[in-house]
Every structure is written in C-alpha cells, then in structure tokens.
Design a binder for these strands. Structure first.
Lengths: 192, 192
DNA sequence: CGGGCAATCTAGTCACTGTCAAGTTCCTGG
DNA sequence: CCAGGAACTTGACAGTGACTAGATTGCCCG
C-alpha cells in the first residue's frame, strides 16, 4: 500500500507528535529536532512547521495533550490516595508528556489550549484533596494539597530520573507509592 | 588595568560556569550555548571547549558541583526535618544546579567527579534518614527515606517550576515546607 | 464534470550552533 | 635563556530552527 508515498501524508500531525514522544522518552526534550521528526515521517524538513509553527509550538501541544490526559485520569479517582496513584501511573505511562508538562521554559505559556487543559487538571486535583473528610476546608486545606502533590510529584520525578532504582529494588512502583501514602497519612486524617 | 584584554583570561573556567548558571536559571538548560558563553566572557567561540570539552561536559561539571554543595549542606543537618529544609533551600538558592542535577540525559553519567559527588550526597541523605530514632533500621527504613526524599524533592521541583505560587501565596517557602513535614510526620515517629 | 481554492508539502536560504584541526601567544620549569 | 606545554584564536564543516516562495493535491461548489 501507500503506492509510492502520496503527496499528502495523511495524518502528519499525529505522526510527528508520536515520533516526538518517542524521542523525548528516549533522550529527553532537548533532543527533539523538527528536521529529524520530518525525516522519520518521510516528509520534507519544513512540513512539521505547518502543523505546529514552532519547536515551542510542538512541545506546547504535547504538554496540553498531557494535561488533558492527566485531567481525565484524575477525574476518575475515588479518593486522594487513588489520585496520587494515578498521578504516578500517568508519569510512568507517559513519561514524555510528563517531562514536557513541567518544563515551562520550553513552552508557550500563554497558549490557550495549554492553560485551559492545565486549569482543568488542577481543578480535579484540588477536588481530590477537598474530598478528604477531615481537611475539608480548614486553613490547612491548601497545605494538605501541596503536601499530597509534592509527595506524588517528587516520587514520579525521582522515578523518571532513575533515582529510585537503588532503594526500591525491583518492586512495583505503584505498590511502593501506596505504602508510602500509608506511612505518611495513616494517622493524620483526624489530626485537628 | 587589564591592558586591553590579555591573551589569557585568567579564570575562564569559573567565568563560563558562572555565565552558564545565569542562563540556566533564567531560561533553562536548553538555552545554554557554548558560543554565547564565550561571547559573554569576551573570548573566542571555541575557548570554553578547552575547559569542558563538550556542552555535555560543561553541564556535567555543573551537576557535580551541585552535588558537592548539596552534600556539604546535608552534612550539617541536625535531623531529618532539617535535612529536608536544607534540601529545599539548596534548590531555591541554586536553581540552575538543581535543574541540571536531575536531568540525566544532559549529563555524562559515567563521569568520575559526578558519580563520586552524587554518591556522597546520597550517603548524607541516608544518614539523615537513619538518624530518626524509630525508623533506625526497620524493613521500612528505605521506604521512609524514599518518602522523605520524594516530599522534599517534589516540593522543590514544583517550587522551581512556579507551580506553588497560587496555593502558597507569598508565604516563605521554607516555613511552608516545615509545616508540611509537621503535618505528615507528626505522629508517624513511633508507628511500630 | 471541471474550475478554482485552500490545505498541505517541497525546496532553498539565512543565521546560528557544536565540534574539530591547526595555528598563536604566553608562562613555567629546567 | 629557552624548550615545551597550557591557554586561547582562527577557520572550517555539518547540522539545526526559522522563514520564504512555489509546487502539488484533494475537494467543494457551480
């Protein structure tokens, strides 16, 4: 099929995105080159620019997509612990998205699609925090959210940068994280 | 003096490092260019390569320096909480180092200076965890370390990526972090 | 059925980058 | 005083992102 490569690629946008995700997961965001992605997709060197305008535009699109996926994942969480587990799982299953999402200097921060997706993900995260009975709306509600987010985010980040392979051995990361939340939040639920 | 720029710069290595740190703090590691650093230092475009060989070599040197500084900071910590506070403080005071330290794809991982500095920092971190009375050496000692590290690292990372400015307002980050550790570790010290 | 139009892609250019190889200047040790 | 090496310069090459003008294609509307 594809006689001898038709003039129109078909779905170049998706192809470039997916190739970019591969490269980022393997060698980090700084290794993505529009020309290289074009080569992989079998199109001319400037074709990707028509879909993303910029290198920054491409990365911004990836980040926005990531926040959208994270938002739906968090939306289905039963409680705060489940949200944390889903956060970590998301980072493991979509490492490329995760990396780009938290590299603000690579993104066009005023991009509409990005900001709305991020806001939605943030809302679902706050909802999960608010759903914890005790910390419903104390003055520390925000701080509890920061604590939970820090724990999950730090764990996910250290995981992706291969810093937990020593201490964790070959245990399942999700299980380890679940244990961690148990250790930390066990008795804090009814603190005051 | 310095007639009209002597042939030898004097301390080009330090000058390039410091310029690189400025750029990284302002625009991230992907914005550093050896040629730009050379221009800032007022030397020819290839001079920096003599001290660092590579772009990767430069970043590796920065990471190693960062781990060394972090190691001394952690070494002076009184207890685990203090170590966490120092970890966060280090990230705030040396954001450029911190970013590069945890971007493995930008570094020469087999560099001797880097690996030894990192090992030393890791040792001091484990020491701080082991110094907690209860979790001296239970089977969960490692997990406690992972929990503490995740919390501090996540907090520091979110701080540097400007994700905590909303929830924290203009409170002092170190104070907030101290509160967090109080919330989480308050009653876990004598768990079993 | 077919003209035209917009989306898509090609091809060429420019300024910039990292890296290499070969020179030049300076300092130091013998 | 003068070899030799370290610090730096100069020049060149391939690869990059961004931009432009132009070619090709599919498709809508008459």
């Amino acid at each position: 099929m594809s006689p001898q490569r038709p003039y129109h690629h078909g779905d170049l946008r998706r192809a470039v995105l997916s190739a970019a995700l591969d490269v980022i997961a393997a060698e980090g965001p700084s290794a993505v080159s529009l020309r290289d992605l074009a080569r992989r997709a079998g199109v001319s060197h400037a074709a990707p620019a028509h879909h993303f305008k910029d290198r920054t535009g491409l990365l911004t699109a990836i980040a926005a997509e990531g926040y959208a996926m994270l938002a739906t994942a968090l939306d289905e969480a039963k409680d705060l612990r489940d949200a944390g587990v889903r956060y970590v799982r998301f980072a493991r299953e979509h490492p490329a998205h995760f990396q780009v999402m938290f590299a603000p200097e690579l993104l066009r921060e005023n991009d509409l699609e990005l900001t709305t997706a991020r806001a939605l993900a943030g809302k679902h995260l706050r909802d999960a925090v608010a759903a914890v009975p005790s910390s419903g709306r104390g003055p520390d509600a925000r701080l509890a959210g920061v604590a939970a987010w820090s724990l999950a985010h730090g764990f996910a980040t250290l995981l992706l940068s291969h810093n937990l392979e020593g201490p964790m051995g070959d245990r399942d990361p999700e299980e380890v994280f679940r244990t961690l939340t148990g250790m930390l939040f066990a008795r804090t639920s009814g603190s005051d």
